[in-house]
């Protein structure tokens, strides 16, 4: 089946504190697939993810060159171009971090928070979207009776699924996951793996992972870092 390219990086280089972390990385990511990025620690895998939603811009003493294009509304667009809104980009390119990072508020408010940031005020729309995101993340049945409890009181695996639900609530086109199961036990990791496979019908996923077993189970494409122009598919 012909698959469209969703994300394309061209000669992407990144430096932090004068040290070159990424060097001329040119990669393509297919739409509605799971791509895994593997490699040793400290090689720039997480940094690479941050270039896809411009989150590195909050990191002092860092600089980037090259281009990143993402297909939005049927057209490849330079995410660093003048016409690209940063908030708009981050709402379409969701991110889940290595350590679960729920905000110190209730489960419901955690999921509804991106909607609040996007200016959505209609209570019914918020309720519907929160339920849908929690169901997508496989957390609805576990928390539906305690939505007003603090998100910080959930277990590690549940917190990570809460963060996935939070990233999904705005229905992003791309989901970046930075070692999403590294702080979880095997059972929780398995739940999240299954969830990611189900998500690729609606979303393009890029997962940074240390675990080759996991990569084999879920990834359609694998890129090995440090990137040397060769990818294993």
């Amino acid at each position: 089946m012909f698959e469209l390219i969703k994300i394309k990086t061209e000669n992407l280089s990144f430096s932090y504190n004068g040290n070159r972390i990424l060097d001329n990385v040119s990669l393509e990511f297919r739409e509605k697939t799971i791509t895994a990025i593997v490699g040793p620690s400290g090689i720039g895998k997480s940094t690479f993810l941050l270039t896809l939603n411009r989150l590195w811009e909050t990191v002092p003493q860092s600089s980037m060159s090259g281009r990143v294009k993402i297909r939005f509304d049927g057209k490849m667009q330079d995410i660093y171009g003048n016409g690209m809104s940063l908030t708009g980009l981050r709402r379409k390119v969701g991110m889940v971090f290595q350590a679960p990072n729920p905000l110190p508020m209730s489960i419901f408010k955690n999921i509804a928070f991106p909607l609040k940031l996007a200016g959505i005020k209609d209570r019914r729309t918020i309720d519907e979207n929160v339920e849908r995101a929690l169901q997508q993340a496989g957390l609805w049945m576990e928390v539906k009776d305690r939505l007003n409890d603090s998100g910080l009181h959930l277990s590690g695996g549940q917190q990570q699924r809460l963060c996935i639900a939070r990233a999904l609530v705005l229905q992003p086109e791309v989901l970046l996951l930075d070692e999403p199961t590294s702080s979880l036990d095997d059972a929780s990791a398995a739940v999240i793996e299954e969830l990611l496979v189900n998500l690729k019908d609606n979303c393009t996923l890029i997962v940074v992972s240390h675990y080759f077993d996991q990569v084999k189970r879920i990834a359609d494409t694998v890129f090995q870092f440090p990137y040397n122009g060769i990818s294993q598919q």
Partner: peptide, 16 residues
């Protein structure tokens, strides 16, 4: 930092 990263990643503005 994790709270701030979360808000940045959700597309929150500086004021938000």
């Amino acid at each position: 930092r994790s709270y701030l990263d979360a808000v940045d990643a959700m597309g929150g503005s500086k004021v938000q």
